[in-house]
Design a protein around this nucleic acid. Structure first.
Lengths: 138, 138
DNA sequence: CTAGCACCTCAAGTATACTTGAGGTAAAGT
DNA sequence: ACTTTACCTCAAGTATACTTGAGGTGCTAG
């Protein structure tokens, strides 16, 4: 089966080498094979790493990830894994709603400032914040 | 005009009192009025706080927020504010794409584990991960 | 009048998630 | 033979974003 050096994995997942070693050290990325002292990552390792990135990027802490994988790796307490996943799934749904909402605010602000800039350049009157309802930025 | 005590603001924005003081200390939340020693927040303060939360929740660092508001407060370098907002706007768009993608992965995993659980309860065969294509979770 | 609550300051401490540095090995290129 | 490259370990250091604690003020309720 195909294996990868730590440098290759680092590039593939855009994570520093030190981070890969760190994840292994804290038990998130177990069973990394060795060629002498050098790490060799296989597909299972990469899959785990992809999962780590996915959960981490959606706001799960490393501690929670440890819990999640501890259950997974030991193949028991399925209820608790499901519970954690369900909770996280809900959090992600909330994040999505909030992110979209915040995006509207940011776009509004950007549009407003951009219009101020244009107005200055063209010697036009300064735009009015009240003319920028959130609904315009959906 | 209406004003609010620090405790009220803390509740309204679900931020610890210590955090409100901290934001003020690092200059993110300037011009907070005082009644003797006690802080009194007005609408402008709340608007600023809402902006802080919005940007912070979308991944802007406090340092970037300081930059953003420094420009805003001093009413110059409009280009740089716009640049920062534009950059952030793009980051948020990327986040949204990534978050949706990650959500699919998480939902898939949750569904898979839930089905394992059901299978165990009903003494049915164990589900197969290959039957859970990402496309099922859009 | 005194007790308690809500607030204050300022310095020091903490959690999370890494990163850096010192010192070393092992194989490949020149 | 030597040196560069690519790794390694282990302990200590760092950045970010707060939090906590000690010690104090000032109004209000009993």
């Amino acid at each position: 089966m195909n294996t990868y050096t730590i440098a290759e994995v680092s590039k593939k997942y855009d994570l520093p080498i030190s981070t890969l070693r760190y994840y292994e050290e804290i038990g998130l990325l177990p069973h990394v094979a060795r060629n002498g002292k050098n790490r060799l990552y296989d597909q299972a390792n990469l899959d785990r790493l992809a999962a780590i990135c996915c959960f981490k990027d959606t706001g799960m802490t490393l501690k929670e990830l440890q819990t999640l994988f501890k259950y997974e790796d030991q193949d028991h307490d399925l209820d608790e894994v499901i519970d954690l996943l369900q909770t996280h799934c809900n959090r992600v749904a909330d994040q999505l709603v909030l992110l979209k909402e915040n995006q509207r605010h940011i776009r509004r602000k950007l549009q407003y400032y951009t219009d101020i800039w244009s107005a200055q350049v063209n010697h036009q009157p300064h735009p009015d914040w009240d003319d920028y309802p959130l609904s315009r930025f959906e």
